[in-house]
């Protein structure tokens, strides 16, 4: 029934991530109005308070901004900012973990670089 994953991560984080994805894929363009909290809630079938929490995370990070009485908009430069953030996350989540795992099973750094180059082809 649920549209959310079952990872047990707080729902509001999942919501925030979905909006981020939409911005990076330019489904939501900069300076464009985003759906209201209620629309998000109904669409994802979650409590509006939870949806609001997710949206507010992005407001706090200056990804979205509120126009009084009109709604929520994507900040100029939001995509840039998100890409930067995701790149940093990528390093932590994948690169560091890969290197750790490589060390554990005895892959040298050179071998690793070769493997990455090969995988990229």
């Amino acid at each position: 029934m649920s549209q959310m994953d079952g990872e047990g991560r707080p729902l509001f984080l999942q919501i925030a991530e979905r909006i981020e994805n939409d911005i990076m894929e330019e489904v939501l363009k900069e300076e464009e109005q985003v759906p209201s909290t209620n629309q998000f809630a109904v669409f994802y079938r979650i409590n509006p308070a939870t949806a609001a929490k997710g949206v507010n995370i992005l407001v706090d990070q200056n990804i979205l901004y509120k126009k009084r009485g009109i709604g929520m908009f994507v900040m100029t430069g939001a995509r840039e900012q998100l890409l930067k953030k995701r790149k940093a996350e990528f390093y932590e989540r994948y690169v560091v973990a890969m290197i750790q795992e490589a060390e554990k099973i005895g892959i040298t750094l050179d071998q690793l670089v070769t493997m990455v180059a090969k995988g990229a082809k």
């Binding site: 029934m1 209620n38 109904v42 509006p48 939870t50």
Partner: peptide, 30 residues
């Protein structure tokens, strides 16, 4: 559930939902 949520979003009110099917509604609840 969908109607409850959509209508609640437009007309917020205090709702108590007594249930044993918690997984079905857990995402609606606060």
């Amino acid at each position: 559930y969908d109607q409850l949520l959509a209508d609640y979003a437009d007309h917020p009110r205090t709702i108590i939902l007594s249930t044993h099917l918690i997984d079905e509604v857990s995402e609606l609840l606060e």
